[in-house]
Every structure is written in structure tokens, then in C-alpha cells.
Simulated scan of single mutants.
Amino acid sequence: RYRHKCFSSTLSGMGRKKLRESLKIKEHDRFPSRVSGYCNWEIGNEVIRFSAVEFCLVTGLTFKDSCESPLHITKHMDKRILRSYFRDGKVNVKMFANWFRNLGPDNNVCDDDMVKLALVLFLEMTLVGKDDRNAIMYWALQLVDDLDAFNSFSWGTFLYGRTFDSFSTCVVGRDDKYMERLESPAKRKAEKYNVYGFVTAFQVMRDIL
């Protein structure tokens, strides 16, 4: 059921040898022509470049020059799934995941809806990668009810934008906080930061280079 969905290439993954060969390609019909921006991360003695090109190759997701607002796309879409399973409309990622895991054989969820809910759960927990205390993206429950619209949505552009924004801002101001912590009597001297989005794509880049 997942084989022909938009995330099938991301779920199946690419072999490391094939991915190494793909990274040598300078142009690709799925590469964004105007999606700009990249960041370099120094890890040990290596400098890892992270841009839309690498993100596209690792995830297999397609890009468009721009990503239409999902709220605009789903503005007039039915909220059937939201009404059927989340009537109070207040659900965070953790609650959604626990509810889905506890669905038993006697649940009232049809097979088609199980696939749709699983796609949204994979999107929330793996690709978007946000804090599980945050609310789920309710518009995704509307969009997934129309699988053609869900599959044609520019997930590569959307997810790369979220991931790149997180990479770009996660360490801003952290050096000052670290210096303050060194001068304070606090026992913990390390300064931590969180990176959200599909960070796995960056981790794969580091492993294959």
C-alpha cells in the first residue's frame, strides 16, 4: 500500500554506492532551479555541505521552484478524518502516535484510513521531526484524504525549507550562552541545541562522504 505513495523512495532508501554516484551529478531534472541556500558544517576534520541538491538525492523527494501554502491548498478540503478520529481537535504528536499504536484488531478504522493515518504519522515523527509535544499539522489530515493531492504536494520543497531554517538558526546566540554558563556556578557546562526537520538526510550525508 505504501509502494506507490510519495514517500516510497524515502522509506525504501538508496544504496550507499548508488547514492555516492548520484552525488557526482551536477544537474538533475528533480533539482530545484531557484531553491537557494546551503550551509557548511565542520564535523571533526570534515566539512559537510547541506543544500537542496543533497537533500533531494538522499530523500528522493521532488522539488518545485516554490511551495504553495498547505493551508491555502486545504482551505476548502473536507475535514472528514479530523472529525472521525480527533473530534476535540487538540492532538499533539505524542498523543497521535500513542493512539495509533494502540489501535487493536477491533478498531473502527478502515484499511484506507489506516494507510492515510500512517502516512501522516510518518510525516510528523520522521520527516518533520518536531517536538512531540507540538500539535499535529491538522492540514495534513485534510490533504491525505485526497491521496492524489497528497502525493503531488511538493514535500521536498516543504521539508527542506523547514530543515534548512532549523539548521540556520539552531546555534544562533549559543556561543554567548555557553560563555555565560562557563562563568556561572552551574555544574553542567555544555550548551545544547535542538535541530528539527528531516535531520536524517544530513546524517546520511555525513556517513557516505
Results as ranks from 00 to 15, higher is better:
R3D: 14
H4R: 09
H4N: 15
S9I: 10
G13H: 05
G13K: 11
R16V: 09
R20G: 02
S22L: 12
R34G: 03
R34H: 08
Y38G: 14
E42T: 15
E42D: 10
I43N: 02
N45P: 00
R49Q: 10
S51K: 08
V53A: 13
V53M: 09
F55H: 07
L57M: 06
L57R: 03
L57E: 05
T59R: 01
L61T: 09
T62P: 05
D65G: 15
S66T: 15
E68Q: 15
E68H: 11
P70K: 11
I73S: 03
T74A: 11
T74P: 04
H76W: 06
M77R: 09
D78L: 04
L82V: 14
F86P: 06
G89E: 11
K90G: 01
N92K: 03
D111Y: 12
D111G: 08
D113T: 09
K116I: 09
M125G: 00
M125H: 04
T126A: 08
T126N: 09
L127D: 02
K130V: 14
W139P: 05
D145M: 02
W155L: 10
T163A: 13
S168P: 00
G173Y: 05
E180V: 03
E180W: 03
E191C: 01
A201D: 09
V204Q: 05
M205R: 10
D207W: 00
I208S: 01
I208P: 00
